[in-house]
Design a binder for these strands. Structure first.
Lengths: 269, 269
DNA sequence: CACAGCCTTATGACTAGGCATAATTGTCGG
DNA sequence: CCGACAATTATGCCTAGTCATAAGGCTGTG
């Protein structure tokens, strides 16, 4: 029966780090998933292989994997194996609404129209944009999303070609930036800013509403590890859209969903 | 890259699996913490005691506790024991913005004014309200929150006296409903709905803005375990307020914060 | 009496191995 | 030839028990 060799090893190597073994393993696996090395749907090594790889006991690996599964990053099925979740970009952390699915789910027909597409250098007068671009070029997209005949989102998006150079090869005429990114780039962090504004003439024209109508504005930025991936501004007519979010402490069911309203905006009571 | 793809994952969230043992234990412990049975700072039974209580192995308990510690609900210290975290009501789960702190944090002076306070029975013509009240009376509050001289929120709130009967004794002239509830009722679940609307005459008058100005509307409902606690509608002038949220998969830093804007609303670029 | 350092021991982290489960494969009957 | 059912076995889940760690007490010295 082998003695516990590993503890003394880890102590010698990582004396400065009080991090527990299973936390280091967890970090490592998270990194592989979020970096894209293990893409969504990938079957990760089983407990026995990981055990050998990290020179630890099976139960330690199991603890890590159970934790990641509870977090929604992976899914485990007996006999089948452990797979990187496809939805870790939505269910695990925050469900970034996929406009296509939202509209279809409400029974309306969805269509998408690309308005503009340009590769350009970041504006020097915009420090936020400069930091986002990291000295590389940006891809800027403007698009409209329709539910039935009505436009329900105008979207302006920046994609960092420093982080996602392959986006430069995509034409985005048929697939929206959000959909393409969700399928190709796992993200690890996101910030949202949600506000309201009165429709400017430009927005009113694009959304086919009156100037001054209330518009819900969502600004979102996502990162993969520490690299900025995309930044997007979305504008919704107030009577067509609202965001909803549900939070529970188990942290497994944090979900944000977007709904397309069919009735008029509910008046305050 | 030779990627092994699993097809059945994309079918959506797991459909009510039989729930493993350690997940049941985890739920149970969460319940005790969130219900207030184990208040913040409480030292929970050690692994040996829990092992006996749940008739399982030590490692199973350890897995649960490690998970809860990673989620931030508890804190573990060798030799000292395991304690319920003091901050689980804000940082661990979701920080429900406390308007008072938000305003003060921005350097503006905060004031609060109660407009109306009434105990009443639920409206029979509102099924949502009936379900919320559970046959008991409701406490309805209307209030304004000011940043400096300007009103920046009009808030209408319902409190379920079935769940929080002691709220009937509070007069809410000095302390807002949200503040009082945060200090007295731990919550375990919350839903948000966020939208935009043009100011109605009533809202415009209260917020001292023009009729038709864009307003950010937040509807929030919270539960303690399965019992509804409160339901609130908040209306913010669009130029004064937006919500922001930051998400990461490590699950430790899920935070939502509200900011008071000082500049005008950023125009779309 | 106060403080520092050693010692005890409660406590959490880990190892080792067996059990239960369900996806796959094989087999039989229509 | 195809579908339903059973056997197989890879895989995740759980139990049992050992080891390292650090909080708090104890002892000895200034």
């Amino acid at each position: 029966m082998a003695r516990q060799v590993n503890q003394s090893i880890s102590k010698g190597l990582a004396a400065a780090r009080p991090l527990e073994l299973y936390q280091r393993i967890k970090r490592d696996l998270e990194g592989r998933i979020l970096s894209g090395e293990w893409p969504p749907g990938y079957r990760i090594p089983n407990e026995l292989e990981l055990m050998a790889q990290y020179r630890c006991a099976r139960m330690t690996v199991n603890k890590v994997l159970s934790g990641l599964a509870a977090a929604g990053l992976i899914e485990r099925r007996r006999r089948a194996g452990t797979f990187v979740s496809r939805q870790h970009s939505d269910s695990a952390v925050l469900r970034i609404p996929n406009l296509h699915d939202e509209v279809i789910g409400r029974g309306a027909s969805y269509s998408y129209k690309l308005i503009s597409r340009a590769v350009r250098s970041p504006r020097l007068d915009d420090p936020g944009e400069a930091e986002f671009a990291q000295g590389q070029d940006l891809l800027e997209l403007g698009s409209l999303h329709f539910a039935g005949e009505r436009p329900f989102t105008y979207e302006r998006r920046l994609i960092s070609l420093a982080t996602v150079p392959e986006a430069a090869e995509v034409d985005f005429g048929d697939v929206s930036g959000g959909t393409w990114l969700m399928d190709h780039v796992p993200w690890s962090e996101a910030t949202h800013r949600i506000g309201a504004l009165n429709a400017t003439p430009q927005i009113a024209r694009l959304l086919k509403i009156a100037v001054g109508e209330a518009v819900l504005a969502v600004e979102r930025q996502t990162w993969r590890l520490r690299e900025a991936v995309t930044q997007v501004w979305q504008y919704f007519p107030a009577d067509l859209y609202h965001l909803s979010a549900r939070f529970t402490p188990s942290q497994t069911s944090i979900v944000e969903e977007a709904e397309v309203r069919h009735a008029a905006a509910p008046a305050p009571k």
